[in-house]
């Protein structure tokens, strides 16, 4: 877990990677990330910060295997990333848990989707263990709509961790959660990944969250995104188990340094474009509840 001292083995390596999207309606190509080179070391907690729309989600989706880069290479364990794999799982900003599944069935989903050697009882035990770890005991049979945002993201976290993946990817997972719940969840996440020795790539727009969680913080510049600077967080762990980390002597310096970096980028971004809006989990449920398309059907 410590960033310094040990031999750092590169696990995920992006080398002059470019990625973007084809805008079908406007018949344009939108470059989200340009010439990004970044190495994620085994066992480290890497946090990405940067103005919204700079391509953080795109980057994490490339690692997840959801988005194919246009150019350059991205390797995982030395092999080019070609689609999702069981060594990488993900926590989503809008939770992305299935509304028709109970908590335990949502958490058990990874075992349904990938072949494995565990017996039914083993799977049930793993699910129950992770439910205890994230604090969802008593809600096994609840549906997501019965849960608060923080609870829903616990489900998302449990689903991602239940298979003990090598890498955990998290895209602003606590962005839509209220401040108090967020602190609890951060501490839980730190404990979980310290236990399992996971490699984590974590996106946030909160500098405080970045310092609280990260071994290293990569600041991404405006779209098309590049890595502007990587900041080492030389603070020992666990940081969140007890007490305030804001009183740590390094905290203020780090925060100011990061703030200056991010502020530059954010000010630059303001004219560049308006954000398309990062949807929150709640609005997703609202949309689910609206009625389906009505038609111009005249009836008879």
């Amino acid at each position: 877990m410590t960033a310094t001292g040990q031999a750092r083995r590169p696990l995920i390596v992006a080398d002059s990677m470019t990625a973007g999207y084809e805008l079908e309606r406007e018949r344009k190509l939108l470059t989200a990330l340009e010439d990004v080179s970044l190495t994620v070391h085994e066992g480290e907690f890497l946090v990405l910060v940067g103005p919204s729309g700079c391509g953080k989600t795109t980057f994490i989706n490339v690692i997840a295997g959801l988005v194919k880069p246009w150019g350059g290479t991205v390797t995982f364990n030395g092999k080019p990333i070609d689609g999702p794999g069981e060594d990488r799982s993900m926590v989503f900003q809008d939770y992305a848990i299935m509304p028709w599944r109970t908590v335990e069935h949502n958490i058990q989903l990874p075992f349904e989707l990938r072949p494995h050697d565990f017996s039914k009882a083993d799977v049930a035990e793993k699910v129950q263990d992770i439910i205890e770890d994230v604090g969802l005991v008593g809600f096994e049979k609840s549906f997501p709509y019965e849960l608060s945002g923080g609870m829903r993201q616990r489900v998302g976290l449990a689903r991602a961790m239940v298979t003990q993946p090598k890498v955990l990817l998290a895209d602003e997972p606590f962005g839509a959660v209220d401040a108090m719940t967020r602190e609890v969840l951060q501490a839980q996440l730190e404990a979980l990944v310290m236990n399992a020795g996971q490699t984590v790539v974590f996106i946030t727009h909160s500098i405080d969250e970045a310092i609280a969680l990260g071994d290293r913080i990569a600041v991404i510049s405006n779209r098309p995104g590049k890595v502007r600077e990587i900041v080492e967080v030389d603070m020992e762990r666990p940081r969140l188990a007890e007490g305030e980390i804001t009183t740590h002597p390094r905290y203020g310096e780090l925060r100011e340094h990061l703030w200056n970096l991010v502020k530059d980028e954010a000010l630059g971004a303001r004219d560049a474009h308006h954000d398309e809006g990062d949807s929150t989990g709640d609005s997703r449920l609202d949309r689910l509840a609206t009625s389906p398309a009505t038609t111009m059907d005249p009836g008879i």
Binding site: P84, M90, L113, P292, T295
Partner: peptide
Amino acid sequence: IINTWAGVKTTEQSLINAARVFGA
């Protein structure tokens, strides 16, 4: 027909992404 079509078409992309990440 049209409602079924609309349901398929409007399926949340993030739910599909989640399923893909977990191996679907």
